[in-house]
Design a protein around this nucleic acid. Sequence first.
DNA 1: CGAAATTCATAAGCTAGCTTACCTTATCGC
DNA 2: GCGATAAGGTAAGCTAGCTTATGAATTTCG
Lengths: 169, 169
Amino acid sequence: MTTAAKPTFPAPGHDHDRCTADAITHAEQICAGRAQNFTPIRRQVLRALLSSHRPLGAYEVIDELARVMPRLAPITVYRALDFLMQNGLVHRIESRNAFLACAHDHDDAAAVAFLICESCGSVGEIPAAPVAQALNEAARLTGFAPKLSVVEITGICAHCQAAGQSLSA
Amino acid sequence: MTTAAKPTFPAPGHDHDRCTADAITHAEQICAGRAQNFTPIRRQVLRALLSSHRPLGAYEVIDELARVMPRLAPITVYRALDFLMQNGLVHRIESRNAFLACAHDHDDAAAVAFLICESCGSVGEIPAAPVAQALNEAARLTGFAPKLSVVEITGICAHCQAAGQSLSA
DNA sequence: CGAAATTCATAAGCTAGCTTACCTTATCGC
DNA sequence: GCGATAAGGTAAGCTAGCTTATGAATTTCG
């Protein structure tokens, strides 16, 4: 299992092709296992999101894909994104109105927190189950019935700290 | 001090005028203490946000204010919102692209989590300091330097649970 | 008085997120 | 073959979030 050993933030010089291929393979397996149709368009959209470890807006996905195929209509991309999100292959980053390919193989219901690097724009995931539980507990104490948690932390990732915040301007 | 005793979600029949007046007074004090200019427009924008315990989009603020004064240009509202946020009087709800008048009197740096009711749209704040610390700790373990945390939990507030999710459609 | 800073007005515009509506195509089971 | 479902194409549009640019009005302060 290589997936379990992946770092939160992939190093700048990591083998990204491998990284992408793994994620695509994983998506294929998930879809096959659920009798879901992993169509070319859905594959392409996922591939576009995988082209970086940054979240992309829907229109960025369109632009990215327009480089290798006829330009997709917004609705088409949104349909594909919906599909990918429903199958846990893509996350929506609320604070950015953007979408991130899930590089990890976690449970659908697993609570994750996103670490968003201000400098390079990369986003890492960390498991947030214990924290989410504590939060939900605190919420329940007020009589609130929590359903979905959004935990997004902005800051500077380790690689950019080392590099000296190059993109900070 | 009444502010400390406020419930997370104000009851449907609470004294909202009082609630608004308190917040305005609080804003005046904050601004006076910092030699910040609490101008009529800023006051009005804050008042608009205080008209409910729901977050409002910038355009909703404009619409709300248009009922009692000449329609403001977007830029004007954004300037006022920036000011109010800088002074901790208004929060931005990232997952909604909307703004919420801060009904509580917490520290600028205090970590808060937002509880967003799916049914009535109200938003409550709960202190999230311990949880935020745990999160930041987990983040730091990966080498990430956290700056700002967004914790937004959607669900159903106590009042709506009691009322039977009336607005759920 | 006059220069600088703050605040706001006015006008215009861009983007991009997201939707509605309708139609074609392909697949699959009956 | 045929109806049902799923996937996608096409066209158009709306909203609303946010910005750029410029100039007037007011205040501050030396």
